[in-house]
Design a protein around this nucleic acid. Structure first.
Lengths: 113, 113
DNA sequence: GCACTATTTCAACAACTGTTGAAATATGAA
DNA sequence: TTCATATTTCAACAGTTGTTGAAATAGTGC
């Protein structure tokens, strides 16, 4: 991921309603969710939802497919993945331990033998 | 980190000049860098730089201290750290392996037996 | 075809953002 | 004190963003 893409993805997530939409789609997982269901969950007027979904799609954070009269939106984990890598590389001196506690081996493995 | 903070931090990074400034400060490390040096490196007019540094500071991404007539800005890794955790939790289903390749144990285990 | 549902498009508008240059402030040196 | 340097403040301005509601489009079923 290059800088302009990172700026676009960060900008797409840097807004209240859009962060809500994206988190909802993350929860929904790979199968996604119809636009109407998102609108109902978040109480967003349909035109506002379309506006935000467009921006998420332009940033590569969601995919759309039609199913009958519904449009199914789903989170793109690969883009999120690329953003996390970009931030780790560019904004954490490439040293995950500086910014990513998750990178600790952690908890499960008893002992590395 | 809560949602409004995450939105603020994402917004602070979601801009060309600011992402440049922050990356430069990450490179500079804990000792930071005087504003003038940043302005020179990135060829930003001083008033524009102040504007962007203010936003980074409001988002908690940099600290400032005075040294003589210079203002020394430094990246706050703890805030970046908190953002990474927030994104991993809220936008990757809390499953780092979905979005954080670094978190994969990776490569070493021959076979899951 | 007509009615019905799901979603997008469009225009309007207030609010916010990023950039600029000139003036103000703060510190240090002579 | 006066001069020079480092940075911030301020006002102005064009451009972008988010929200709204009404109208348009696309698909389904009768």
């Amino acid at each position: 991921m290059k800088k302009p893409d990172a700026v676009a993805v960060l900008g797409a997530l840097a807004q209240d309603s859009r962060l809500d939409v994206f988190r909802l789609l993350v929860e929904a997982g790979r199968q996604g969710m119809p636009a109407g269901h998102i609108a109902a969950s978040l109480k967003l007027p349909p035109s506002a939802l379309t506006f935000h979904l467009d921006r998420l799609r332009e940033a590569g954070l969601v995919t759309v497919t039609r199913d009958g009269r519904s449009m199914i939106y789903a989170a793109r984990f690969d883009t999120m993945n690329a953003l996390m890598s970009y931030l780790t590389d560019q904004c954490c001196q490439g040293r995950p331990e500086l910014c990513v506690p998750a990178a600790k081996p952690a908890r499960r493995r008893e002992k590395v033998r």
